[in-house]
Protein backbone atom coordinates (compact mmCIF):
# COMPACT_ATOMS: atom_id res chain seq x y z
CA UNK A 1 0.00 0.00 0.00
CA UNK A 2 1.28 3.47 -0.89
CA UNK A 3 0.44 6.35 1.44
CA UNK A 4 1.59 9.82 0.54
CA UNK A 5 1.97 12.71 2.93
CA UNK A 6 1.41 16.03 1.21
CA UNK A 7 0.72 19.64 1.99
CA UNK A 8 -0.39 22.67 0.04
CA UNK A 9 2.39 24.70 1.61
CA UNK A 10 5.81 24.16 3.13
CA UNK A 11 6.57 24.05 6.82
CA UNK A 12 3.41 22.30 7.98
CA UNK A 13 5.23 19.26 9.35
CA UNK A 14 5.02 16.73 6.52
CA UNK A 15 8.36 15.23 7.33
CA UNK A 16 7.55 14.98 11.04
CA UNK A 17 4.36 13.11 10.21
CA UNK A 18 6.00 10.86 7.60
CA UNK A 19 8.84 9.82 9.88
CA UNK A 20 6.64 9.33 12.94
CA UNK A 21 4.15 7.30 10.93
CA UNK A 22 6.95 5.15 9.49
CA UNK A 23 8.47 4.61 12.92
CA UNK A 24 5.17 3.73 14.58
CA UNK A 25 4.23 1.23 11.88
CA UNK A 26 7.61 -0.44 12.12
CA UNK A 27 7.20 -0.73 15.87
CA UNK A 28 3.90 -2.49 15.32
CA UNK A 29 5.67 -5.07 13.19
CA UNK A 30 5.03 -3.84 9.68
CA UNK A 31 7.50 -3.66 6.84
CA UNK A 32 7.88 -0.04 5.95
CA UNK A 33 9.53 1.85 3.16
CA UNK A 34 9.91 5.61 3.43
CA UNK A 35 10.63 7.70 0.34
CA UNK A 36 11.59 11.32 0.75
CA UNK A 37 10.33 12.82 -2.52
CA UNK A 38 10.85 16.42 -1.42
CA UNK A 39 13.80 16.48 -3.79
CA UNK A 40 14.48 20.18 -3.51
CA UNK A 41 14.87 19.96 0.21
CA UNK A 42 14.97 16.38 1.46
CA UNK A 43 15.24 16.39 5.24
CA UNK A 44 13.74 13.15 6.57
CA UNK A 45 17.25 11.77 7.05
CA UNK A 46 17.76 14.31 9.86
CA UNK A 47 15.47 12.18 12.00
CA UNK A 48 16.94 8.86 10.90
CA UNK A 49 20.22 7.07 11.46
CA UNK A 50 21.16 5.42 8.21
CA UNK A 51 23.13 2.22 7.72
CA UNK A 52 24.18 0.42 4.54
CA UNK A 53 24.08 3.69 2.70
CA UNK A 54 24.28 3.81 -1.06
CA UNK A 55 24.23 6.75 -3.46
CA UNK A 56 23.90 7.07 -7.19
CA UNK A 57 23.84 9.96 -9.60
CA UNK A 58 20.78 10.68 -11.69
CA UNK A 59 21.32 11.80 -15.26
CA UNK A 60 19.25 13.36 -17.97
CA UNK A 61 20.18 13.26 -21.66
CA UNK A 62 20.84 16.73 -23.08
CA UNK A 63 21.99 17.90 -26.51
CA UNK A 64 25.59 18.46 -27.40
CA UNK A 65 26.21 20.42 -30.56
CA UNK A 66 29.04 19.70 -32.94
CA UNK A 67 30.07 23.16 -34.10
CA UNK A 68 31.87 21.73 -37.12
CA UNK A 69 28.66 20.29 -38.51
CA UNK A 70 26.26 23.02 -37.37
CA UNK A 71 25.24 25.58 -40.00
CA UNK A 72 23.26 27.75 -37.54
CA UNK A 73 20.12 26.98 -39.52
CA UNK A 74 17.97 27.56 -36.43
CA UNK A 75 15.82 24.42 -36.72
CA UNK A 76 16.72 23.16 -33.24
CA UNK A 77 15.76 26.41 -31.49
CA UNK A 78 12.55 26.49 -33.48
CA UNK A 79 11.42 23.02 -32.43
CA UNK A 80 12.45 23.39 -28.78
CA UNK A 81 9.18 24.29 -27.05
CA UNK A 82 11.08 24.91 -23.81
CA UNK A 83 13.32 27.52 -25.44
CA UNK A 84 16.49 25.95 -24.18
CA UNK A 85 18.40 26.77 -27.37
CA UNK A 86 19.38 30.12 -28.82
CA UNK A 87 21.00 30.79 -32.16
CA UNK A 88 23.71 33.38 -31.65
CA UNK A 89 25.85 34.82 -34.43
CA UNK A 90 28.56 32.23 -34.27
CA UNK A 91 27.16 29.31 -32.27
CA UNK A 92 24.15 27.70 -30.68
CA UNK A 93 23.80 28.51 -26.99
CA UNK A 94 22.27 25.85 -24.74
CA UNK A 95 20.50 26.46 -21.41
CA UNK A 96 20.54 23.13 -19.59
CA UNK A 97 18.17 24.22 -16.79
CA UNK A 98 15.40 24.73 -19.32
CA UNK A 99 15.90 21.47 -21.21
CA UNK A 100 13.26 18.77 -20.70
CA UNK A 101 15.30 16.11 -22.51
CA UNK A 102 12.60 15.61 -25.13
CA UNK A 103 15.10 14.76 -27.85
CA UNK A 104 13.34 17.00 -30.36
CA UNK A 105 16.37 19.04 -31.32
CA UNK A 106 18.60 16.11 -32.19
CA UNK A 107 15.78 14.46 -34.10
CA UNK A 108 15.11 17.50 -36.26
CA UNK A 109 18.63 18.80 -36.84
CA UNK A 110 19.11 18.51 -40.61
CA UNK A 111 22.92 18.25 -40.26
CA UNK A 112 22.99 15.57 -37.56
CA UNK A 113 25.06 17.99 -35.54
CA UNK A 114 23.38 17.14 -32.24
CA UNK A 115 24.20 14.16 -30.12
CA UNK A 116 22.95 13.46 -26.61
CA UNK A 117 25.16 13.41 -23.55
CA UNK A 118 24.31 12.67 -19.93
CA UNK A 119 24.10 15.52 -17.48
CA UNK A 120 23.96 14.92 -13.72
CA UNK A 121 20.93 16.62 -12.17
CA UNK A 122 21.00 15.10 -8.71
CA UNK A 123 21.34 11.95 -6.72
CA UNK A 124 19.35 9.19 -5.12
CA UNK A 125 20.41 7.83 -1.77
CA UNK A 126 19.12 4.87 0.15
CA UNK A 127 19.80 3.00 3.34
CA UNK A 128 18.28 1.26 6.32
CA UNK A 129 17.10 3.49 9.10
CA UNK A 130 17.76 1.78 12.41
CA UNK A 131 15.32 3.01 14.96
CA UNK A 132 16.23 1.24 18.13
CA UNK A 133 19.67 -0.08 18.67
CA UNK A 134 19.84 -3.82 18.31
CA UNK A 135 16.35 -3.97 16.87
CA UNK A 136 15.78 -6.11 13.83
CA UNK A 137 13.16 -3.77 12.53
CA UNK A 138 14.17 -0.96 10.28
CA UNK A 139 12.75 1.39 7.75
CA UNK A 140 13.95 0.99 4.22
CA UNK A 141 14.63 4.59 3.40
CA UNK A 142 15.39 6.36 0.14
CA UNK A 143 15.59 9.98 -0.88
CA UNK A 144 16.15 11.99 -4.01
CA UNK A 145 18.08 15.23 -4.09
CA UNK A 146 18.23 17.71 -6.93
CA UNK A 147 21.46 19.61 -7.33
CA UNK A 148 21.26 23.31 -6.58
CA UNK A 149 19.83 25.29 -9.47
CA UNK A 150 18.24 22.23 -11.10
CA UNK A 151 14.49 22.27 -11.65
CA UNK A 152 13.68 18.94 -13.29
CA UNK A 153 12.19 17.34 -10.19
CA UNK A 154 9.73 14.97 -11.92
CA UNK A 155 12.30 12.83 -13.77
CA UNK A 156 14.34 12.47 -10.58
CA UNK A 157 11.22 11.45 -8.68
CA UNK A 158 10.21 8.90 -11.28
CA UNK A 159 13.63 7.33 -10.84
CA UNK A 160 13.24 7.36 -7.07
CA UNK A 161 9.76 5.87 -7.24
CA UNK A 162 11.11 2.90 -9.21
CA UNK A 163 12.39 1.70 -5.84
CA UNK A 164 8.85 1.27 -4.50
CA UNK A 165 8.21 -2.20 -3.11
CA UNK A 166 4.43 -2.60 -2.99
CA UNK A 167 4.56 -5.51 -0.57
CA UNK A 168 5.59 -3.02 2.07
CA UNK A 169 3.75 -0.08 3.51
CA UNK A 170 5.23 2.69 1.39
CA UNK A 171 5.19 6.19 2.82
CA UNK A 172 5.92 9.04 0.44
CA UNK A 173 6.95 12.42 1.78
CA UNK A 174 5.80 14.66 -1.09
CA UNK A 175 7.14 18.12 -1.94
CA UNK A 176 4.99 21.04 -0.72
CA UNK A 177 2.63 22.88 -3.04
CA UNK A 178 0.32 21.67 -5.77
CA UNK A 179 2.50 21.95 -8.87
CA UNK A 180 4.14 19.24 -11.01
CA UNK A 181 6.56 17.89 -8.37
CA UNK A 182 3.78 17.35 -5.82
CA UNK A 183 1.57 15.69 -8.42
CA UNK A 184 4.41 13.46 -9.57
CA UNK A 185 5.02 12.39 -5.97
CA UNK A 186 1.44 11.54 -5.01
CA UNK A 187 0.49 9.95 -8.34
CA UNK A 188 -0.24 6.26 -7.87
CA UNK A 189 -0.84 6.52 -4.11
CA UNK A 190 -3.62 4.50 -2.55
CA UNK A 191 -4.22 7.17 0.02
CA UNK A 192 -2.98 10.65 0.87
CA UNK A 193 -2.83 12.53 4.13
CA UNK A 194 -2.96 16.28 3.66
CA UNK A 195 -1.15 18.10 6.41
CA UNK A 196 -2.26 21.59 7.29
CA UNK A 197 -2.06 24.03 10.12
CA UNK A 198 -4.84 26.09 11.63
CA UNK A 199 -4.12 29.46 10.02
CA UNK A 200 -5.77 31.33 7.13
CA UNK A 201 -2.76 30.54 4.90
CA UNK A 202 -2.92 26.91 5.91
CA UNK A 203 -6.59 26.74 5.00
CA UNK A 204 -6.09 28.48 1.68
CA UNK A 205 -3.35 26.06 0.61
CA UNK A 206 -5.32 23.10 1.94
CA UNK A 207 -8.19 23.98 -0.37
CA UNK A 208 -5.84 23.97 -3.37
CA UNK A 209 -4.40 20.62 -2.34
CA UNK A 210 -7.90 19.16 -1.89
CA UNK A 211 -8.83 20.23 -5.43
CA UNK A 212 -5.66 18.66 -6.80
CA UNK A 213 -6.31 15.32 -5.10
CA UNK A 214 -9.90 15.30 -6.29
CA UNK A 215 -8.69 15.69 -9.87
CA UNK A 216 -6.14 12.90 -9.34
CA UNK A 217 -8.90 10.76 -7.76
CA UNK A 218 -6.78 9.85 -4.75
CA UNK A 219 -8.72 9.28 -1.52
CA UNK A 220 -7.50 11.49 1.29
CA UNK A 221 -8.00 12.76 4.80
CA UNK A 222 -6.72 15.83 6.61
CA UNK A 223 -4.29 15.98 9.47
CA UNK A 224 -4.05 19.21 11.41
CA UNK A 225 -0.67 19.95 12.89
CA UNK A 226 -0.10 22.51 15.67
CA UNK A 227 -3.81 22.35 16.33
CA UNK A 228 -5.24 24.87 18.78
CA UNK A 229 -8.63 26.20 19.62
CA UNK A 230 -8.04 29.72 18.41
CA UNK A 231 -8.60 29.11 14.72
CA UNK A 232 -11.42 26.77 13.90
CA UNK A 233 -11.95 27.47 10.20
CA UNK A 234 -10.02 24.40 9.03
CA UNK A 235 -12.25 22.15 11.10
CA UNK A 236 -15.39 23.88 9.78
CA UNK A 237 -14.19 23.70 6.19
CA UNK A 238 -13.57 19.96 6.46
CA UNK A 239 -16.93 19.41 8.05
CA UNK A 240 -18.68 21.36 5.34
CA UNK A 241 -16.83 19.52 2.56
CA UNK A 242 -17.29 16.15 4.21
CA UNK A 243 -13.56 15.57 4.57
CA UNK A 244 -12.40 13.42 7.48
CA UNK A 245 -9.89 14.85 9.89
CA UNK A 246 -7.78 11.83 10.75
CA UNK A 247 -5.63 13.44 13.44
CA UNK A 248 -5.08 16.66 15.31
CA UNK A 249 -1.63 17.18 16.72
CA UNK A 250 -1.90 19.89 19.35
CA UNK A 251 0.54 22.70 19.76
CA UNK A 252 2.34 21.16 22.70
CA UNK A 253 5.60 22.08 24.24
CA UNK A 254 6.79 18.51 24.68
CA UNK A 255 6.28 17.73 21.00
CA UNK A 256 7.99 20.91 19.88
CA UNK A 257 10.96 20.24 22.14
CA UNK A 258 11.53 16.72 20.88
CA UNK A 259 11.20 18.00 17.34
CA UNK A 260 13.84 20.67 17.84
CA UNK A 261 16.22 18.03 19.15
CA UNK A 262 15.63 15.91 16.04
CA UNK A 263 13.86 13.18 18.02
CA UNK A 264 10.72 11.44 16.75
CA UNK A 265 8.06 12.36 19.27
CA UNK A 266 6.23 9.06 18.85
CA UNK A 267 9.41 7.36 20.10
CA UNK A 268 9.16 9.14 23.44
CA UNK A 269 5.40 9.40 23.71
CA UNK A 270 3.83 5.92 23.30
CA UNK A 271 0.30 7.29 23.14
CA UNK A 272 1.27 8.95 19.86
CA UNK A 273 2.77 5.77 18.53
CA UNK A 274 -0.64 4.19 18.99
CA UNK A 275 -2.33 7.16 17.36
CA UNK A 276 -0.11 6.87 14.27
CA UNK A 277 -0.85 3.16 13.98
CA UNK A 278 -4.53 4.03 14.12
CA UNK A 279 -4.04 6.20 11.04
CA UNK A 280 -3.17 3.06 9.18
CA UNK A 281 -6.22 1.24 10.54
CA UNK A 282 -8.23 4.28 9.51
CA UNK A 283 -7.16 3.83 5.87
CA UNK A 284 -7.78 0.10 5.93
CA UNK A 285 -11.27 0.66 7.31
CA UNK A 286 -12.01 3.20 4.56
CA UNK A 287 -10.78 0.84 1.88
CA UNK A 288 -13.13 -1.92 2.93
Amino acid sequence: MIISIASGKGGTGKTTISTNLAFSLVQSGRNVQLLDCDVEEPNAHIFLDLENKIKENVFLPVPQIDEEKCTLCGKCAEVCVYNALFIAKDRVMFFPQLCHSCGGCSYFCPREAISEIDRVIGEIGAGDACLTRGSTYGIEFAYGKLNIGEVMAPPLMRKLKKRIDEDKVVIIDAPPGTSCPMIEAVKGSDFCFLITEPTPFGLNDLKLAVETLKVLKIPFAVLINRWNEEYFEVDSYCEKENISIAMRIPLERKIAELYSRGILFSKELPEWQKAFCKLFDFIEALRK
Binding site: A77, V81, Y82, N83, A84, L85, F86, I87, A88, F95, L98
Partner: peptide, 30 residues
Amino acid sequence: NAAGGAGIKAAQLVVDKGAEVVITGNIGPN
Protein backbone atom coordinates in the same frame (compact mmCIF):
# COMPACT_ATOMS: atom_id res chain seq x y z
CA ASN B 1 2.79 32.12 -23.57
CA ALA B 2 5.99 30.04 -23.56
CA ALA B 3 6.06 27.30 -20.95
CA GLY B 4 9.57 28.33 -20.02
CA GLY B 5 12.50 30.26 -21.43
CA ALA B 6 10.31 33.14 -22.57
CA GLY B 7 13.28 35.51 -22.30
CA ILE B 8 15.36 33.37 -24.63
CA LYS B 9 12.61 33.04 -27.19
CA ALA B 10 11.89 36.75 -27.10
CA ALA B 11 15.60 37.45 -27.51
CA GLN B 12 15.70 35.16 -30.53
CA LEU B 13 12.80 37.09 -31.99
CA VAL B 14 14.48 40.49 -31.74
CA VAL B 15 17.87 39.15 -32.83
CA ASP B 16 16.29 37.59 -35.92
CA LYS B 17 14.72 41.00 -36.68
CA GLY B 18 18.21 42.47 -36.75
CA ALA B 19 17.88 44.66 -33.66
CA GLU B 20 21.15 45.92 -32.20
CA VAL B 21 19.68 47.64 -29.16
CA VAL B 22 17.00 46.42 -26.75
CA ILE B 23 15.09 48.76 -24.46
CA THR B 24 12.89 47.35 -21.71
CA GLY B 25 12.04 47.61 -17.99
CA ASN B 26 13.69 44.53 -16.53
CA ILE B 27 15.74 41.74 -18.02
CA GLY B 28 16.31 38.23 -16.64
CA PRO B 29 19.61 36.34 -16.61
CA ASN B 30 18.94 34.02 -19.57
